[in-house]
């Protein structure tokens, strides 16, 4: 019964739009799964002590490279995405290699990545002739004659997007599971706890960190590309820069980065928070959401360091047996 439960939930999730979920709830669900995937990608390195504030850059590369190639040269996203992934890999390597080789860890690593996400945002703004600057850009529509275009990765039906995003999200969870069961995960935890000792037992610290950074960055890039295609609009603030990078960190901490569904719960939480703030205050109070994020981040770190899901699972488990081991579930 307990084994079947995740599959039943998944089936229910997959069937939900078919039984007449409204357009708005469906939109929210797509957003949760999409951001859940991105947050999962972030956590793959974040949970191992590699706290990155630079994932906005990877998101931005995914979104902008695909859209710009399509708009300027008519290159299909199916070709644009591999190009974006290659560029992401190069950027991740250029940032990661020196950091890991010279043991830039903790706060210093976070600062380096913080700069990266801002550089990406400023580049997008500065290249306004090509990128549309801070006003953003819309992929040229391929939907003039038909309701969908596979070549342009554009679909007018939210249902199609739902299943695409669902599949990608499940892929993200699969990567997480693979990582979780691998020797590499133990090795990376060892690195995050005692880097020199990890080296002394034969772990190639630089290579493993680079590997996990690449996986995480590539996932984020895929998320950025899908986001741009789904929204059919991107601007520098929504996919690059410090704001979105912080939001990822906040979402993951809120949801819980040590359990597989934690990042997704975090995505749902941030989205609900943002939506309810928008409904309550409209767009009149501009920095209100950031202020509230900041405040809640502090509260989460102090009172619920394992996040909503991590904390809840621990409470449930704590009732069953007094084992304090949820962190590594």
């Amino acid at each position: 019964m307990m084994r079947a439960l995740p599959w039943i939930c998944l089936a229910a999730l997959a069937a939900a739009p078919l039984v007449g979920l409204g357009n708005y709830p469906l939109h929210m669900l797509i957003q949760v799964l999409l951001w859940g995937f991105v947050y999962t990608g972030w956590s793959i390195m974040g949970r191992l002590g590699l706290v990155s504030f630079g994932h906005g850059a990877f998101l931005g590369i995914g979104a902008y490279v695909v859209v710009m190639l399509w708009n300027a040269y008519g290159v299909s996203p199916w070709i644009g995405l591999p190009i974006a992934l290659a560029l992401t890999a190069v950027v991740a390597f250029v940032i990661g290699y020196p950091c890991f080789r010279f043991k830039i860890v903790g706060h210093y690593f976070a600062l380096v990545t913080l700069a990266l996400s801002e550089i990406a945002r400023m580049l997008i703004v500065a290249l306004r002739d090509h990128t549309g600057g801070s006003l953003g850009v819309t992929p040229k529509t391929a939907l003039t004659e038909s309701a969908y275009s596979l070549v342009a990765l554009q679909f007018s039906s939210k249902l199609v997007w739902f299943y695409i995003v669902l599949a990608v999200w499940l892929g993200g969870l699969w990567v997480w599971k693979k990582m979780d069961r691998s020797m590499a995960r133990l090795a990376l935890e060892a690195i995050s706890q005692e880097e020199d000792a990890a080296g002394s037992i034969g772990i190639n610290v630089t290579r493993l960190k680079l590997g996990v950074t690449l996986i995480s960055a590539l996932m984020t890039c895929v998320g950025g590309a899908l986001y741009a295609q789904y929204q059919a609009y991107v601007n520098p603030d929504s996919v690059a820069g410090i704001g979105i990078s912080l939001q990822m960190v906040f979402g993951v901490i809120a949801g819980g980065m040590y359990v597989r569904l934690g990042p997704t719960v975090g995505a749902a939480f941030t989205l609900l928070l943002a939506e309810s703030l928008r409904l309550m205050f409209g767009n009149s109070l501009h920095a209100l959401d950031s202020t509230i994020y900041g405040l809640m981040l502090v509260l989460f770190i102090i009172f619920m360091p394992k996040g909503i899901l991590g904390g809840a699972l621990e409470a449930v488990k704590g009732k069953k047996a007094a084992s304090p081991d949820v962190q590594r579930a």
């Binding site: 020797m183 133990l186 090795a187 060892a190 706890q193 005692e194 990890a198 037992i201 034969g202």
Partner: peptide, 16 residues
């Protein structure tokens, strides 16, 4: 030691 890993996981890491 890898403080947040179990004793056996620490030993396992020794045979990495």
């Amino acid at each position: 030691l890898f403080a947040r890993l179990s004793v056996e996981e620490n030993l396992k890491m020794g045979a990495f």
